[in-house]
Design a protein around this nucleic acid. Structure first.
Lengths: 313, 313
DNA sequence: AAAAACCATCAGTTTAATTTATGGTAGACC
DNA sequence: GGTCTACCATAAATTAAACTGATGGTTTTT
């Protein structure tokens, strides 16, 4: 049994296809086939059922794959140990970011980070929270930036910053005379929200629920970006809510319509999330330091009320 | 990096000697040397400092060795998974047994076990608890039988049976008229005990302490076996305490001198202990079943008081 | 029924692991 | 302080393993 064989098994388990798995492993298909067979021979069991297509994993195979993931991950950590010892911070690092923080947060820290750690090859992927979690769990992402708390098993969360929500209330709206909003003002039928899959929406819904206890409603309009949301709001479709960082780039006219919440303002917690095995932890640590250092200046801290993105509370 | 290389590193780390490590790994010394070097090259660090003799492990080396242990252990578990799936129970299994239970317990279960699981090659080693713990922690033992609770990190305990203590009181002893002993009767200066290293002794001392709170005393005589202890006792050197299973093989005359304790009798807990990683758990389970099944008949259960072998209480 | 997708097998090559033989160095011994 | 011994590294040769390219047989798809 070799680590390589285990990696091949993992590739096949993932792609359910020897040919594709071979490509992804940068070897030819016979190489991969033979190595997998060799491992199966050595163990005396079939890991994959090749009789039907697409191939399936046998019962034992599933357990073997799970254990192989362990072993390969533990093996990779040896490199981490050496890097940490050398004080070397480098190599590929894949980071997921949720769509609602991507455009505002990324430009803030990206430049600083790649200048400070030029050896790190940062690969950034925009993806919703559920996809991100799956990717972290199976090792396709080294870390992610998402709204927390999530409280997922095997995933650690380290808060980066707390971002208050700001109301965007158009001219003739019923709340346009208010100076400061309060959660009691919100009516779930009157707030424009992002479409499903954006965890921010969960936060807002919880916010509404928390303040008025209205559930089971359907919303008239849902959009995919805050820009659209603001436009719709201007058209008289209702008010909307924006995370603080999304408000700074609005033009002067639109800024007039912003109404902050009374302290304590509702807010979302944005965290760096990563697998509890802490692979590449030295890079994760570096990233955390850079981001929170930068954000510390950008968000004027206030007494905020944290809104969970989970529906459960 | 291969699993083999990691195993070689572990062998060197253990023996602090390439030549010996090579022997133990069943390869020649150059093979092992080259593979270790290759791994060091790949990682770009020295794992061993060969400049002085005996060789030493570098700072990074220690971390690498610790992680290598993980990986190798996890890799071995793949075989376990397959065995478990096949319902196969076999292979080498190394079991440690403390000296005071070895002669009584071993003959009781050995035959039954090897008949029921002929594929298991049981290797039994008699050793005191402290050695046993070290061996379980570094993987030289698959399990051990010892007096518990030990409460050692990374070690699991599964009680096999509770063995009451029985007093052996010779003819002219001050307690010879008593029918049933009580812990209050015991005087630490008057009880013959096994020499250091036998955990049973700790149990007895605790027992005495528990009943009379006498500490810091030195004992006149300490022997290495219960047989000697009984002989010494007959010679008028004082009474002694025997675990129940050690009393059944006494001849009729000596059995006259046995005096059980009043219920609840003091007792020791004998457990199967093993690493929490649960390697070869299917054999450990089988062993546990066989032993407790057999002992269930041998020890008449009574209301017993459990004596910890630890000094701390 | 033909085409496509996909995995296994084979023969040959490249690469890696291992061995035997040998050389060099640190400690032990006198 | 010189010699011996234990011990690790290196070199060359061998053996074993991994990998490739070509090909053939199944299973799906069309």
């Amino acid at each position: 049994m070799t680590i390589t064989q285990l990696q091949y098994v993992l590739a096949v388990a993932e792609h359910k296809n020897f040919t594709l798995a071979a490509e992804k492993s940068y070897v030819t298909q016979p190489t991969l086939s033979m190595q997998v067979q060799k491992l199966e021979d050595e163990l005396g069991v079939l890991i994959f059922d090749r009789s039907k297509k697409p191939i399936s994993i046998t019962a034992v195979g599933k357990k073997i794959v799970a254990q192989a993931k362990n072993i390969v991950a533990e093996a990779e950590r040896i490199k981490d140990i050496v890097d940490q010892d050398k004080g070397y911070i480098g190599g590929d690092y894949t980071l997921g970011i949720i769509p609602t923080v991507m455009p505002t947060l990324l430009p803030m820290f990206l430049n600083t980070f790649i200048k400070k750690y030029p050896k790190v090859n940062l690969i950034i992927k925009e993806q919703p929270t559920d996809v991100m979690i799956r990717n972290i769990l199976d090792g396709h992402l080294d870390a992610g930036i998402a709204a927390t708390p999530l409280e997922i098993e095997f995933i650690k969360e380290r808060p980066l910053y707390y971002e208050p929500f700001v109301g965007y209330v158009p001219q003739n709206h019923r709340l346009s005379q208010e100076q400061l909003l309060s959660t009691e003002h919100l009516d779930v039928n009157d707030v424009l929200l992002l479409q499903d899959g954006h965890c921010f929406r969960d936060g807002v819904i919880n916010l509404c629920k928390a303040s008025k206890n209205i559930g089971g409603e359907t919303f008239k309009i849902e959009s995919g970006s805050f820009e659209t949301l603001v436009s719709l709001s201007d058209e008289g479709m209702g008010m909307t809510l924006l995370p603080y960082l999304n408000t700074v780039q609005l033009d002067a006219a639109k800024k007039q319509n912003l109404k902050p919440f009374k302290s304590p303002s509702p807010a979302r917690e944005i965290s760096l999330i990563y697998h509890k095995s802490e692979l590449k932890i030295q890079i994760t640590d570096a990233l955390k330091e850079v981001i929170s250092g930068i954000v510390r200046g950008a968000i004027a801290f206030q007494d905020v009320k944290i809104i969970s993105p989970l529906a459960k509370n």
